[in-house]
Amino acid sequence: MADRCPYLDYRREAGEQTFDTARPYCTAADEFVQPMRADICAGRYGLDHATDCEIYLAHADDREGETGAE
């Protein structure tokens, strides 16, 4: 199983959106994640954010120099 994306968080609210239960949230895109994309974020089924997510790849350079950045 691939690692979970470092940009993935689970939140009940962001901006004007609130939910009864915590949902996947992308801290790179600053928005809640579609369910299908969330499987990439969570590293399920062999999906890997480092190869399968264009949002992660677009922001990966921003993480260079951070401890543990890929």
Partner: peptide, 8 residues
């Protein structure tokens, strides 16, 4: 079907 988090 969905998980409680809305994921598939």
């Amino acid at each position: 079907a969905r998980r409680d988090s809305g994921e598939r």
